[in-house]
Design a protein around this nucleic acid. Sequence first.
DNA 1: GCGGTTTTCCGAAACGTTTCGGAAGACTCG
DNA 2: CGAGTCTTCCGAAACGTTTCGGAAAACCGC
Lengths: 345, 345
Amino acid sequence: MTRVTLKDVALEAGLSTTQVSRALNDHNDVANATKEHVRRVAAEMNYVPNLDARRLQDPALRTGSIGVVIPTETLRFSDPFFGDLLSSMVAEAGEHGMQLRLSTPPIETDVLAPYDESIRHMRVDGFVLVRTLVDDPRVDFLLDRGFPFVSFGRPESSDGFSSVDASPGAFGTVISHLKGLGHRRIACLAEPPQFAIAAHRLASFQLAIAPHVRAGLFCEPTIRVAGFHEDDGLAAARTLLSEPNPPTAIVALNDLLAFGTLHAAVELGLVVPDDISVVGFDDIASARLVTPSLTTLHQSASEVGGLLIEELVPLIESNSNTNSERLIEPSLVVRNSTGPAPRRS
Amino acid sequence: MTRVTLKDVALEAGLSTTQVSRALNDHNDVANATKEHVRRVAAEMNYVPNLDARRLQDPALRTGSIGVVIPTETLRFSDPFFGDLLSSMVAEAGEHGMQLRLSTPPIETDVLAPYDESIRHMRVDGFVLVRTLVDDPRVDFLLDRGFPFVSFGRPESSDGFSSVDASPGAFGTVISHLKGLGHRRIACLAEPPQFAIAAHRLASFQLAIAPHVRAGLFCEPTIRVAGFHEDDGLAAARTLLSEPNPPTAIVALNDLLAFGTLHAAVELGLVVPDDISVVGFDDIASARLVTPSLTTLHQSASEVGGLLIEELVPLIESNSNTNSERLIEPSLVVRNSTGPAPRRS
DNA sequence: GCGGTTTTCCGAAACGTTTCGGAAGACTCG
DNA sequence: CGAGTCTTCCGAAACGTTTCGGAAAACCGC
């Protein structure tokens, strides 16, 4: 019950292992008839080349695996966006004959360890970076190693690699939606700004509203940095809405924060959208299930995941990193959490 | 910039490669002083053993990877439970120094291909089977190959392997909860019964209600097989609630079906829970976000995921399959979708 | 100081593959 | 027919590790 080896095939085919190897690898110094013969023999002997021996011979051989290191944060609190992202990455990777290799850092402090380990042991061909920081040691590390990767979210200082993120123009539609409803005082609930995506979203929001503020159509928006999760949104919105002269609309930079805001409103006896409008970002599945259903910027997880892999594959093939920034266009989904601004009190 | 090899270390340490190898592997025929010396030299030379060469020598060496094949179904429709399950599996695998290897079948018809490929190429040490069928070819295949695996959900006919599922006793609490509220006519929305978990849930439900039916406390429940998703629940509940003499409570065998049921109720102008009570299963994150918030059987994804890996690891170590059935105990979370039965009309 | 044991070491072979360099045979062309 | 060129083949070495069998060195008791 031991594995069929190249030598076995050679013996059976009456050839040297050299020729069998070259026949199977379709080299051009073996007769077509021979190739055919070898292939048939190999097939009927159920020959499977030993990957390890092959890689020992040629260490540059691909593993067919893409590494994804899951941040401990995501392990503790479920991130609904992440599951879909993962699924779509697996699907797209499958299209290219590749798999995903998921790992997690053994201790939180040693961020680079899983990457180093995977590279040293040549276990993956490239990485997808998630939860990328504005100043992310992983980027420098991989850039330095010359190891192919693509990042979801773009660190500001570095250069020479590929990333995917949402188009900064996305908030334009949000602002005009709110303007159309008569809102003038807006607050923004942001994610921790050390994360590239979070910083990018906040910058996009500010970019979109700035001209309107200058034109006097909007007050200077209140920015509050919350966390990632519903509880963070709840806490932040609670204080925000209890302060004097509260905003009439709150733009949360992810849906969970928006959910927290909805809860805060209920707590304080405010009706959404009559007293306060709420906008989210991501359009996770529950966004249309909450009450009131959430107006939010739809960002397709499957599109992001597909794009990440699509960007990575050529990098893996050329074994290099090239500069590229792909932006996907989120679209505003208007539901029931936004409405006309309440009359000035 | 080429890798440091054993020979390099041997040269530097003034020993043979044999002794260096044995020193690093802590064999007992090498002097302690030598071991120490070799270790120091290896460390300062930054020596990393070549995994491929090692595995070529000893093919039984572990890869440190656990295979998970994602069903195409899950790729197309997002399954909120699945993301959390995956996260917890990665976390638990990490505890044991292992990673997850995610792949997807190239064509739907060829269910076994990814498993076969992974085994032939010795890419994983074991598998976690998800979306296991009542009659699942993968189980027979892996059993036949003697390849370690653990299944989420238990096929009925086979034996001699490990599985994890929800305890069948779970529905007892649901039934008594509903009984306490005065319900007598119950319907059940089931998932497609070819799936082991689905069949198991339905059987558990029927087991729990049977004695009450015999005692005349409940009518014979109406069972409807729907799909997995909200739309399926919507369609099934719509017809169910439009029929004469409709149930006063609907037990959906997963939360998405329950969400669909809530929508159907709204469509038909029924108020939940005044006109109809709804119970779900899983307690996915959105269950407490919908309106009314969903009474449901909480099944901890992280517990399931952890248990699956925990069961698998010893199997991998012994390279065998043993019979085992771990049951986790779901707990009823009462929220606002259940209430007293409406008065007899 | 000598046979016998224990400790410590090493050379060579092996794992399964690919490639290097060369060689045998067939074919071409003058 | 002979030199030259293609085509088709093969032996041997190599990749980096571990193990097998044995051998040198050290130690023991007498």
